[in-house]
Design a protein around this nucleic acid. Sequence first.
DNA 1: CTGAAAGCGCTAACAG
DNA 2: CTGTTAGCGCTTTCAG
Lengths: 341, 341
Amino acid sequence: METFAKMTVTIKDVARESGVNVSTVSRALSGGYGVHRETRQQVMAVAARLNYRPNRVARGLVTGRSHSLALVVSDIRNPFFAEVARGAEDAARAANCDLILCNGDLDADKQMGYVRSLLEKRVDGILMNSADFLSRKQQQELSSCGVPIVLLNRAAPRGLFSTVHADNEAGGRLAAEYLLSLGHRRIAQLTGPRRHGNMTDRARGFNAVLQERGAAEPVTLHGAMSFAGGWELTRALLERHSRCTSIFAANDMMAFGAARAIWEAGKRVPDDISLIGFDNLEISMVLHPPLTTIHQPKYETGCAAVEILLRLAKTGEHPVAEHRLLGVKLIERQSCRRLRG
Amino acid sequence: METFAKMTVTIKDVARESGVNVSTVSRALSGGYGVHRETRQQVMAVAARLNYRPNRVARGLVTGRSHSLALVVSDIRNPFFAEVARGAEDAARAANCDLILCNGDLDADKQMGYVRSLLEKRVDGILMNSADFLSRKQQQELSSCGVPIVLLNRAAPRGLFSTVHADNEAGGRLAAEYLLSLGHRRIAQLTGPRRHGNMTDRARGFNAVLQERGAAEPVTLHGAMSFAGGWELTRALLERHSRCTSIFAANDMMAFGAARAIWEAGKRVPDDISLIGFDNLEISMVLHPPLTTIHQPKYETGCAAVEILLRLAKTGEHPVAEHRLLGVKLIERQSCRRLRG
DNA sequence: CTGAAAGCGCTAACAG
DNA sequence: CTGTTAGCGCTTTCAG
């Protein structure tokens, strides 16, 4: 006689149907150690016939591992994080883990709310955009929460967390060397807020090279790290320092804004002004002209972070923080020109 | 005396510490119905002191609801899906659910693998990019899997699934009307594969208006729905049909590719050729000139899909499929010009 | 190699 | 209002 309600089939059903104990089914299905070949094959056949799907929630409850990781970024719509997310998801999937996506909006309370919720779900690890806008107390709470956390930038005090990030300083150096090699001397730099770690590192590398080569200090403008920010800064720049022959924008979005402002001012890239960005977003090649920029390994950052997380999750009790620095490189396209002379 | 191993504190600990039974703690903490005010407050105080975090995995095991939803897109790096994902995540969060991110790459096996894995995790619902590249059998498997599924386009045969999608046909009409109103008569259309649902709908609307107004049938080129696709088609177009005054690209990425090809051919947008896209990706305004396009409510699509999922998940046994059609609108920027005459 | 039993942390009747 | 008793579906000793 058949039942009406199509209940989900459990390990018990498989056990009954194949005439063995649930524990045998469990062993047969996961690993298969210590089970007679025949029994196992029969169990597997029954499981298949019944269309049995193990309940990973139940398994997680006893094993203590949920096989899910979380990614907390400021906003997945930022193409930078979309790339990181893809890398992270691929790496997670390769390890048979899910990736939970969270958009923290750089809001401390919101982000802490996410983390607490994730802890209740017993995620095996958390991958975070950043923690440097959190209070010291909040950072402490995170670092002692029991699950491994990897940050996508440095800025964690006293090495509380593991980190993965690109070599921003080297990238800044690359940009400066490139501009110099093209003969530029009157250079402007568009960057983010003064205390933003990544931005500061890029600027440091950039400035260091100019100084080493005896070039003039660049005109440096601080603003929002966005299209609008780049646009505004460039407008101001063009009004006040129209003699610049080149601009280093500390990220591609700012470079796009700069390109717009330059265009609106009736000037052209690279003919009138050379422009170099940072990040190498996929869309940086759709711009006219295609943007020369510093490539940052975004996908690889996501992968690396997940690898660290997984290792930390396995190690257990006393995980030692790991810091991984990823290389950058110059992507030469068509937004910079060589100065004659 | 303190223990060394910092075990995670459970509901039992709270119960013991506050001198009541676990079930009372459970009631006090969730809902609070049928618990004396004082007892509840005391329990809550103890829970706070012990820094108790309920284990949602355990709760899920008994309630049968995991409070997680999944989003399966082809690739989160596609800015379109990033927007959808953000909408979905916000809506999920508002309902206290997590969102698991999956990148299916439009690979049938990969996508089915994801779904099976998600079912084992007992997600409460799945939000999918598309299912029309799956075999009939696979679609059947999905539709009878037990958890609600919402698709981000139509194309599901026999209404097996719920769907949310933009009014593509209306968008195509809008584009045609606009081009016509600017005086364009020699129009080209760049679109995707012949059997792609969304693309076909856009083309249908577009062509219908041209026909209604007695305009010539547009030159229609089919190709990849990407930057490269738009670029290639436009190169071919410019070689063979150089008399076109305007191009309708069936999505923004193709429009970007078209813009590049036009630029490389020494022509200018909109002076020589007007260009209109579809999607209104955030980056469409960074292009030079800013791209005129049809706005599609991507964020809202994600929200709506999650709402439907949640409603379906609540209803339980016999969920009736829901189909939601979202409006589109013309975003006029600077990539189309009025023809004199 | 297999079965019996205990329990992961929590909720949900059911009594009292 | 609160305690007792059963499990949710699975893994994991521990015997046999």
